[in-house]
């Protein structure tokens, strides 16, 4: 059972309802390239937020894991150019791709099982960059720089996946399900143990829980979430290339999660929306060529001024308005999770 108060359920329902009727109000461009994009990348960022907030693992391998699902679905897609010998219907390819991402997530968790905090960040980053370099240099499977094209996605009710409505609602369904999944899991015994590991590794082990196994399971679950995002991202981009899983793509997902706020699963989607908006409209402000400088400056200011992101700013505003002083959430900020957490 997902533990939310009646008010939170009402707010969630209201939010979903608004998103459901958005297609009536928004132009197709906004629907697909802003909202849809924010939701599919938000799912990948959500997998990072899940690991970071509830497990204390800032993993930079989530884009890579999403990319594994993307490459898997591209390799098995019936429409792929170039078509591979193991092409199969999308109805099979998509679940297999998500399974591949889940296993890849578990493998990342296994490799990094003894490392924490900054070491974990370094190792997952090394894995991510290494995988993209591998995809870039491997022709047999990954088709090198070119990548795999024309991954248009399945037809839904006879409509191509690229139809704005179809894409939007698919993204919405996946995003909402993954969001609820995270809220559900963190209240299960597994989720509670995970948070115990975050707070004190040693004590959790001393009580008798298998810390390593819980960590690997958390990474596998994060891989499952990121996998769904990766499949949809590949449909959104109509294909996949090594640069879509490279260092900058990895950093982009980190930026989304951090700008939105690592303190709450919704932060991932807020951050992805802000990123999509900036990416789209930066050209009118400073010219698209210098988008990276702009996003870098925004990211830097968020990390310097409000490490818990936009979500944290909102929480503090709320607290100030309610006259409770301004303390909550700040302590949980990613930047403050330093070495004192039970090593």
């Amino acid at each position: 059972m997902i533990m939310m108060s009646t008010r939170q359920w009402a707010l969630t329902g209201l939010g979903v309802a608004i998103l459901m009727v958005l297609p009536l109000l928004l132009h197709n461009f906004w629907l697909v390239n802003i909202m849809g994009r924010a939701m599919v990348y938000g799912v990948v960022a959500l997998s990072l937020t899940f690991l970071a907030h509830y497990g204390g693992f800032i993993s930079l391998a989530q884009t890579m894991v999403a990319g594994i699902a993307g490459y898997a679905v591209a390799m098995m897609a019936p429409t792929a150019i170039p078509l591979s010998t193991m092409a199969m219907p999308y109805a099979l390819a998509i679940p297999l791709a998500v399974l591949a991402a889940t296993l890849a997530g578990a493998l990342v968790g296994l490799i990094a099982v003894n490392t924490r905090e900054i070491y974990l960040l370094m190792i997952t980053l090394a894995l991510a960059v290494g995988f993209s370099l591998f995809a870039q240099s491997n022709i047999t499977w990954f088709r090198g720089y070119e990548g795999i094209r024309n991954i248009v996605g399945p037809e839904v009710f006879g409509l191509p996946f690229r139809t704005p409505m179809v894409f939007y609602y698919s993204a919405l369904i996946v995003a909402v399900l993954m969001y609820l999944l995270v809220l559900y899991v963190v209240r299960t015994p597994f989720g509670l143990v995970l948070q115990a590991i975050r707070d004190s590794n040693r004590r959790t082990a001393a009580i008798g829980f298998n810390v390593a196994l819980h960590r690997i399971a958390a990474f596998a679950l994060a891989g499952f979430i990121a996998g769904w995002g990766g499949v949809l991202i590949t449909f959104y981009n109509i294909g996949i290339t090594p640069s879509s899983i490279g260092l900058w793509a990895t950093v982009a997902v980190l930026i989304m999660a951090v700008i939105g706020g690592l303190g709450h699963p919704l932060g991932a989607f807020i951050g992805a929306l802000i990123y999509a908006l900036m990416d789209t409209f930066a050209s009118t402000i400073i010219g698209h060529d210098r988008f990276n400088t702009l996003i870098g400056l925004v990211f830097l200011s968020i990390v310097l001024l409000s490490p818990d992101g936009v979500w944290g700013i909102g929480e503090r505003l709320k607290a100030t308005l309610q006259g409770k002083g301004s303390k909550p959430a700040v302590e949980e900020a990613a930047g403050n999770e330093t070495a004192d957490r039970g090593s």
């Binding site: 905090e117 400056l297 990211f299 830097l300 310097l304 990613a334 403050n336 999770e337």
Partner: peptide
């Protein structure tokens, strides 16, 4: 604050490269 430092240097690296 090691993680925050790492995030700051990531932000700086994006700006420097651009």
């Amino acid at each position: 604050q090691e993680l925050r430092q790492a995030l700051v240097t990531i932000g700086l690296s994006i700006i420097i490269a651009d």
